[in-house]
Design a protein around this nucleic acid. Sequence first.
DNA 1: CCTTGAGCCTGTACCAACTACAGACACTAG
DNA 2: CTAGTGTCTGTAGTTGGTACAGGCTCAAGG
Lengths: 122, 122
Amino acid sequence: MTGCNLETIRYYENIGVMPEPPRSSKNYRVYDDSHVTRLRFIMRSRELGFTLEEVRDLLALVDGGAQTCGEVQVLANTHLTSVRTKIADLKRIEHVLSSTVAQCTGDDVPECPVIDALTEVA
Amino acid sequence: MTGCNLETIRYYENIGVMPEPPRSSKNYRVYDDSHVTRLRFIMRSRELGFTLEEVRDLLALVDGGAQTCGEVQVLANTHLTSVRTKIADLKRIEHVLSSTVAQCTGDDVPECPVIDALTEVA
DNA sequence: CCTTGAGCCTGTACCAACTACAGACACTAG
DNA sequence: CTAGTGTCTGTAGTTGGTACAGGCTCAAGG
């Protein structure tokens, strides 16, 4: 249906981002469209890297029914900033790693620029 | 000395990437240069995003004293690939987020492109 | 000499965001 | 009727640490 692991949904119920659904006579969870919609919202948020705490904030706004574009924009911009920071961090790492690995001979010798870089006293 | 939290060093000892150092008469840990060197190696590896499991592998090679540039290069390249994958993932996220947020009016209105994107049925 | 504050010691619990069981019941196909 | 799969509950494990609690030790100041 949503491709979401059932145990993950249960987890979302536990932490309160998904409501507890009604149960069948045999105690099985019975979901309706509103659950599916909400779960998709959470999944899409997670795909975009929002933490569950941020998702909780977004949902609180939407649940209130009185969210404003301005409020949502603030949350999204905060998240966007953290994403950009992560990209910058990873790019630095990528640069160091790739330029170091490029100096490797790849041979059967103990001398290795990668080890040197990691051992570096500086 | 290394700027590393003492509790982190203890954690490294527990998981076996740092050796248990000798103790003083009062049971205090006594570190020497070899510990400092090893800790710096771990810290630099972590800064470059290697997991502790990967650090363990690197250290196993170095500890054997018989590491070859080729072996190290394989580990480094594997890690480099995962770094590049993460960058690509985050760039996609950054693109979606920034182009969506750019459509926000930021006003006191409930309509919001970010919410629309998260609710999207497609 | 005594106190006070800091440092270290051990062990355990906590964080995110799930995943992976164990043990019990339910349901479906052959 | 039985085998295999699904769900149910609750708990423990994952990664890379951080944050105590409760106890010792040590150095400085009065």
